[in-house]
Design a protein around this nucleic acid. Sequence first.
RNA 1: UGCGGCGUGGAGCAGCGGUUAGCUCGCCAGGCUCAUAACCUGGAGGUCGCAGGUUCGAUUCCUGCCGCCGCAACCA
Length: 548
Amino acid sequence: MSQPSTFFITTAIDYPNSRPHIGTAFEKIGADVQARFRRMEGADTYFLMGNDENTIKVSKRARELGVEPQPYVDDMASQFKEVWRALDISFDDFIQTSEPRHHAGCQRFIQAVFDAGDIDKRPYKGLYCEGCEEFKTAKEAVSPDGRELKTIEEAEAAGACCPNHPKTPLRIVEEENYFFKLSSFQDRLLAHYEAHPEFIQPESRRNEVVNLVKAGLQDVSISRKGFSWGIKVPFDEEQTIYVWFDALLNYITALGYGSADDAKFRRYWPADVHVIGKDITRFHCALWPAMLMSAGLPLPKSVFAHGFVYRKDEGSGVLQKMSKSIGNIVEPMDLVRRFNSEAFRYYFMSQCPFGGDGEFSFERFAETYNTGLANSLGNLYSRTITMPVKYFGGVLEGSSAIDPTAWRAGLDLPALVEELRSLVGSFQYAGALQTIWLQVIDAANRYIEATRPFALIKTDPAATKIALVNLAEALRVVSILIKPFLPRTAETFYAAFNFADAQPFDRVCFADAASRPPGPDLRVTAALVDGKVAPLFPKIDLKAEPSS
RNA sequence: UGCGGCGUGGAGCAGCGGUUAGCUCGCCAGGCUCAUAACCUGGAGGUCGCAGGUUCGAUUCCUGCCGCCGCAACCA
């Protein structure tokens, strides 16, 4: 037997200056579905997440709260992980960029780039706010006459200030910083995009980046002077590595790059896919590969930029970006507590195309839940289990000899499974789920109407049994196909009958959906109350909800 | 201003050169009762933003216009 292939998948690391919202969760769920799918496919999968802690904002936020940065970020990291676990995000590692392993790897890396001659020191010119003691961009500057400012020169001339210190005009200050010679990588980057069309996904993002790089790249400042929080530049103790150069490196420092124990790095790098938000595409598709080229490391195989989730206001119907100032942020735990993690995952994966933008409203959430989960999926589960219990005491003797393919007559299941593998493997989750619901779940519901086992039992118990065995098989198939998306529901489905006697649930792969493995006769193993299962997804009635 | 995206029945989305433009929800009418008043069948509802062009043929390709929305270097 050959070595299983590896699959290394990462998400963007988050700033821990506030708790994650549902948009952040969207990314993690999308990555998690992929990780779970690849594990099912037999790949040795490694799923990395983390927090981006070496930022000025984080240290300032900690100071506001009167705590040291380290305990602050540690506390935030545990809060983040708690949310991710509640959503069943199956990460294998969670890196905090304040950890020693990250610091060490970063220093090793920046040294390598320095030694390669791609870093030099030169003056950095920026808008400095004496109140904040930090540089601002022209965009952040507020002009006294309310004008939009495009350049830092314009901002200084207008006497603009930062929003926090309206009485202290911003001035252009120069300081010596280290710069990464990004501009010299333009040709190599373009050649790489050309040779690897799959490097940036989806297609629309790829075009964006190609245009951007064609337009020309500027060298980027990668260090700052005079900060105590962060990673020191190894060849200049007075300087601290600045945000992106540090953040991107988490993908390799988490694997032990530059440390004595770099077995994981050797095994999993290069990454198969970095899952990120569309806003940071350029850093992952231009800066990051250039950094790796400079250090002589292989480039990630692909970057997938997902869309954003916008908040649709129930009253006005207005679609807005979620933000603290508007006060329209929805926290994942709200939804998990009020409903459950499966409903959360289902909503985002089925309603928001991963590569594009999606929207969220409680109204749509309830609608999606009620129709997709309660009526369609949950109800199928109930009726599939009740009948064998009612008519055969839960034991379907002789079922192993029955061919369970009648329920899917007219459906080419093997072809469908192949199609689904392709859809899920390419992040087309909404399409995959719609296909499962339309082709498989609806087929099972229709099969009940066609065979009418509840009537058939009065005249032909043998035929009834055949119908019920078919239904059980449909449940098994559904269980396998939804496993990456709804892991808990999938497991509940699989445990409803003694399917595990034929094949343990954790060994099931997508291809197994198309053919039933030989096994003993079927019997119902679900927990029953008065001969019935409790509804898996009780209907949501928003009007009856106390708040929202 | 530059770059990019979007505009398909009441709502949300597919489709993207070629038989009667699909799907989910909603609506209307039947059927059924195993099931979470669930499920199944049928129906009404669209000149595929507007105007040109390419083509034997365009919702699908090109151009222009209108409307909405992103991005423009550190915002998931």
